[in-house]
Design a protein around this nucleic acid. Structure first.
Lengths: 218, 218
DNA sequence: ATTAAAATTTAGACAAAGCTAAATATTTGT
DNA sequence: ACAAATATTTAGCTTTGTCTAAATTTTAAT
């Protein structure tokens, strides 16, 4: 696969949200920041190569083979993201562009050894799961902190309320996007919860818990 | 610079042995496994871009700017080689192909952090020096072990005598290509020497020392 | 100093991947 | 159900990097 083909495969995969969904030419064009006519050309080629199913005017989906390629790309992308954050001190929001390049490196041994070097991580710095070598992986879902059951952990990925006071609170309590949070206990009465974050244990009110999004795997 | 342009720059650089030498179109073609006519086209383009000096029928050399690019590529290539060997357990002879891909990744931060992560290595697994960020580096030369002064270390890169008995000797003494050897002491009388290799200290006869090539930096 | 051989360049073609503009399908609003 | 709006494809052109074959320049041998 060429670099360009791989990018299209990934785009089709992501637009289909990982399900094997048919996506429109226009949607792919928008995602790839290219023109619909270019997409038509490429999906024809991918179709001939056995990577995609394409019916004119009806959209495009990935074949089994195409999905395998997509998953391998996602696996590589996310492993490199972990590497960049854990080993090279990149912050969680700086990694995407570089991982986008690294995911195209072709070497099975490289990926396997990288995986091992990183301790076989299950999720990337954004809380998204890393497919196994065989392509298996759990889905990730975004939930509010208050909806997460006791004993489960997730990665902080966003806020519902983005008002300055709330952001200031997070800052003061050293809760940042990308942090892993484990739910230790929940108080039925007022909805407050105990969480563990970076070795610290803190108690958090319901108002806070209902405004913080975490990504968890099912 | 495109991938292809970078490959040509590296080829010109390596053929010129790092000196700013003029190299022939044919030489570049052979190195790149391409046709001389393709080289002509490309060096014209590189010339227009201010990367190379090209006179028809007279060969091509790199400009200052071109040399900077070449050194940056060499730096990246060798840092990745160190990474692959030290962190991902690649052997010294498996790294080239993968490093060839990795060297094209564009991210200054990535290179700087990688350098730091590896502890600012001075040489790659083949004993070749790694240019600094600014492009400075020492030359490496290949010498027989017996020619190396006391206190200096080098990396084992080849044998002069490749007869089975000699290779068997190396194997038995666990001396392999890629190993770092430090010269501890030399015996004037019989030319035998003491070396340190992988924490072990061993005594080696003149016959051995005159048949083992090391790469050292001046 | 010529001429044959070798090296290099030029000209013209091709594949990949993209674009624009025009043509054609599909969808939607009434 | 039909016309208008939207989505998609086709046709033809562009750029990048490559190739082959022919032309030209340089080098080497007598």
């Amino acid at each position: 696969m060429t670099l360009s083909e791989e990018d299209y495969i990934k785009a089709i995969y992501h637009l289909g949200k990982g399900e094997n969904t048919t996506v429109s030419t226009n949607a792919v064009a928008e995602q790839m920041e290219t023109k619909p006519s270019s997409v038509t050309d490429m999906v024809k080629k991918l179709s001939e190569k056995g990577v995609a199913n394409y019916k004119p005017y009806k959209g495009v989906s990935l074949t089994e083979y195409g999905q395998k390629i997509a998953l391998s790309l996602v696996r590589k992308h996310r492993l490199w993201e972990v590497f960049l954050v854990e080993k090279l001190d990149f912050s969680w929001d700086e990694v995407h562009e570089v991982a986008e390049q690294l995911e195209h490196i072709k070497s099975e041994k490289l990926v396997d050894q990288l995986d091992k070097h990183l301790g076989f991580p299950q999720v990337d710095p954004h809380g998204d799961p890393i497919p196994s070598k065989k392509g298996e992986f759990k889905k990730a879902i975004k939930k509010l902190l208050n909806e997460i059951p006791i004993g489960k952990s997730g990665i902080c990925v966003g806020v519902k309320d983005s008002s300055p006071p709330f952001l200031k609170f997070l800052d003061k309590n050293k809760i940042a996007l990308g942090d892993t949070i484990l739910v230790l206990d929940k108080e039925e009465f007022d909805g407050s919860i105990d969480i563990q974050i970076k070795e610290r244990t803190i108690h958090i009110s319901s108002q806070i818990a209902t405004n913080l999004y975490l990504k968890i795997t099912e």
